[in-house]
């Protein structure tokens, strides 16, 4: 009788061993990958990175007209949900910051906000994938019966709070916004006026009965210039601070044209330039050495260089107080040494 016993193939053993090694190798690599990259994957999934353009929209409109503005929101983090809202805002300080007041309700009539996108609606969340941008086209309509005044809003793009991962957790939610400054006017020439409420030197030290600031010759000159809007529409100031010294010293500092909202005041900056970029910087002047009396005059025009002019001036006296004190101390010390040597 012939038994049909298949002899053990040593090659199969070898193949099985090779397979096992391959499987183990794959598992090992997978484990290494999970151990090495899992924390990064977790961190990425719980981060947020949004950017928005433009950051500000300024518009003047006739009642009964509409405009549209495209906003580009870009998600540089991982996939997220974006919700859109519009809030009214008020100026919160003299530096251009805002306080969100209340969300624009669905039944608000003046102005009316809506999206022109076919697939997006205001206050309806949408998905934004990682690395993608969405162009949201905001339509602003001013009904015929809208009062002629200014309207200030912030267009917000929010993400929902992160999913809970862990035990006791503080989850985070992020929102980014852009400001809308709207002036409603029938003739395009709303009343624009303002006044300089403060023009002085920063750290101004005044002697009793004297109406000028004292300054050390080696100190930088830094001005505080505040203006308020007493008109019916927001505007920008255009102008300079002109400085003249008794010893024929003179300088001019360009003022940054920043928005001043109605019933609000703003501290103005100087205008700095680097290459083609112009940006706000402290309103200051840093000569090597100051000496004698100086007069600084702030000359501003409202809305355009040809607009209504407002001005104010400040006088200051520069003297080398620190240098003089140092020399005085040096003389006293040397005098003391001299006396000691003599005795």
């Amino acid at each position: 009788m012939k038994t049909n016993v298949k002899p053990i193939n040593t090659n199969e053993q070898i193949i099985f061993s090779k397979g096992a090694v391959l499987v183990f190798a794959h598992l090992f690599i997978l484990a290494c990958y999970l151990l090495k990259f899992a924390p990064i994957a977790k961190a990425q999934s719980l981060s947020l990175s949004l950017s928005l353009w433009p950051p500000i929209l300024e518009a003047m409109m006739i009642p009964g007209k509409s405009i549209t503005q495209a906003y580009t929101i870009t998600n540089s983090g991982l996939d997220t949900i974006i919700d859109t809202k519009i809030f009214k805002f008020e100026p919160s300080d003299e530096h251009g910051n805002i306080t969100l007041v209340e969300e624009v309700s669905a039944d608000q009539k003046c102005p009316l906000f809506s999206f022109e996108n076919a697939n997006l609606s205001l206050s309806v969340p949408f998905r934004l994938k990682s690395g993608n941008s969405e162009q949201v086209i905001l339509k602003i309509t001013i009904p015929e019966d809208c009062p002629e005044e200014d309207y200030y809003f912030t267009f917000l793009f929010s993400t929902p709070p992160a999913a809970k991962i862990g035990q006791s957790v503080a989850r985070e939610a992020g929102t980014i916004g852009a400001n809308l400054l709207l002036t409603v006017s029938k003739d395009g020439q709303p009343l624009r006026k303002g006044e300089i409420t403060e023009f002085t030197l920063n750290h101004c030290r005044k002697l009793p009965l004297f109406n000028f600031c004292l300054l050390d010759s080696l100190d930088p000159v830094e001005f505080i210039l505040k203006i308020s809007n007493t008109g019916q529409a927001f505007w920008k100031p255009f102008g300079k601070v002109k400085i003249n010294g008794l010893l024929r010293q003179s300088a001019e500092i360009e003022i940054m044209a920043e928005n001043v909202l109605t019933k609000a005041s703003r501290q103005l900056h100087g205008q700095c330039q680097e290459g083609e970029e112009i940006y706000p910087c402290p309103l200051g002047w840093q000569p090597k050495f100051l000496l004698g009396p100086y007069r600084a005059k702030a000359e501003l025009a409202i809305t355009s260089p040809q607009g209504n002019k407002i001005n104010s001036q400040v006088t200051f006296l520069a003297f080398p107080f620190k240098l003089g004190l140092a020399i005085l101390v040096a003389f006293v010390v040397l005098g003391l040494i001299k006396n000691k040597v003599r005795t």
Binding site: L50, S51, A59, E277, Y279
Partner: peptide, 26 residues
């Protein structure tokens, strides 16, 4: 209407960006 989008004195192509590197504080 008349309209101005973005700050005219600053390079207008730079967007306004905000990031939070960890959204779940465990």
């Amino acid at each position: 209407y008349q309209l101005l989008a973005g700050f005219w004195y600053i390079k207008t192509i730079i967007p306004f960006s905000f990031s939070i590197d960890d959204l779940s504080i465990d």
